[in-house]
Design a protein around this nucleic acid. Sequence first.
RNA 1: GCGCCCAUAGCUCAGUCCGGAUAGAGCGACGGACUACGAAUCCGUAGGUCAGAGGUUCGAAUCCUCUUGGGCGCGCCA
Length: 553
Amino acid sequence: MKRFLTSLLEAALRRAVQKGRLPEVELPQVVLDYPPEGRFGDYATNLAMVLAPRCGMSPREVASRVLEELEGSEVLSRVEVAGPGFINLFLKDEVWFEALRTACLQGEGYGRVDVGRGQRVLVEFVSANPTGPLHIGHGRIAALGDTLARLLERAGYRVEREYYINDVGTQMELLGRSVYARYCELSGLRVPFPEEGYRGDYIREIAEGILKEEGRRYLEVPEEEAVRRLAERAKEVILGWIRDDLERFRVSFDRWSSERSLYEAGEVQEVLEELRTKGLLYEREGALWFKSTLFGDEKDRVVVRASGATTYFASDIAYHRRKLQRGYDILIDLWGADHHGYVKRVEAAVEALGYGKERLKVILVQLVNLLRGGERVSMSTRAGEFATLKEVMDEVGVDACRYFFLLRRAESPLDFDLELAKRQGEENPVYYVQYVHARIASILRKAAERGVGVPPPEEVDLSPLELPEEREIAKQVGLFPEVVEGMALSLEPHHLPPYLHRLAGTFHSYYNKHRVLSEDRALTAARLLLVQGVKQVVRNALELLGTTAPEEM
RNA sequence: GCGCCCAUAGCUCAGUCCGGAUAGAGCGACGGACUACGAAUCCGUAGGUCAGAGGUUCGAAUCCUCUUGGGCGCGCCA
């Protein structure tokens, strides 16, 4: 609707200029806003105020000349000039009421838009090191990334989800050493625990498991080999946990991409060669540097250390090249916000490889402060006291958990207090929304019990709907597609909960005042279509959030 | 020291990209509503120098500058 009105206004502007009602000036981008109150209409634009100085006319004068060109529109019931020069647009009631019919007819497909036009997008997220279970911060990124992916799918993009596994280097070695140490301990040998090792109990669990299954064979091979093989075993175990947790969290990936495979396929060497050929590498103090400053980074970055070992950055360049070569139009990376210093160098790498910087969009997600009764819970994996995603799912449930994570925009830190989440229990916003769905399901059950048939949507006469609340509800339903579009374009899924909450609030209020099922058959039929439309939108929106829409609660 | 992000109601946050009308929610607080399709709901009340100062503008929470306070980054770590 917004899109339609925008083009309507653009056309009106052009006509006004053609007819000489407005001087030939550069026309501004038409931006439609949602005015703060109903009395200012369904949509409003300030374009007359933007245009006025260029035309040498007063804003109100410009506005009224544009309005002349809008007369007789099929969808508008009224247009007005208001305040300092706003143009307020009032839609005909039928336009919104018809959205209810559309929602019912399109069902699950309602809210599908096509801003993506089939572009291919890769969303890479979570990508936690396989050195320990997922914690709550990963959960936030998982919820955000998955909802973003669902959103983009609904907005007409071809989306794939990918998890990048950092399975080489220091972390892996440390993992192997930690498991080895516990393994030795369990076999009755005293060995020093590695300085920076992973101290969580899960390491002992893994060591126990291996001991049980394979006995003491790792004591009979050289330590270095044992460490290497134990790291590999531990990685598999931990990745299994990660997969399980994510599956339960309703997040699934199309591809798990391993860092090591980049080395094995020679892609790291290849990309270094490519950069060398382009003259973007140089040697200094024994190390090999990438000239990232040429592309806006603050300083050049090392890709091969003096020791001959490549850096994490080097494989990350190779990884991004691999992704780009697979032909995606857009790459989206979700990272923890502590990596923000890393953004510029990866953007630089993408550019250096000959791809536009706009192909890569990095979304930084602030970490979660986990609180328990107001007290901060430490989340260091090394120290071994972390709040795992699993624990949180057990405690507050997947629905509430996912909804909660989507409540704030990615860049703001999130305080997650478990005690609070439990205490809020029934007043949790997710239940408020789910309750709408359950309530409507209940009404429909009741209608069936009473033998009140629900006619096919295309046959229902909507004219009995005339209450302002009904118009408002229908409008909220009608806005869903453009809400989806807006979130997909801005990559900001956090607007969904407020939208849902508003729809739910409007509905609950209406429900308490008016009855759906009554003696008046025509009115009942119309209202049944109304609630079905609401139910469908709630369901579709909850689906985007990865939250269930229960028939009863 | 340099760079990035942030500061809006008692608390947690939208709104900032693209300046516009009386700055919005939730939670918490207080007072009401179930013999009605589900009270996990509803109705009402209270609550604001948009951190501070200056600037641009017809108009600033929004743009610019400075100050204060907080977070993060600045490795041949990942």
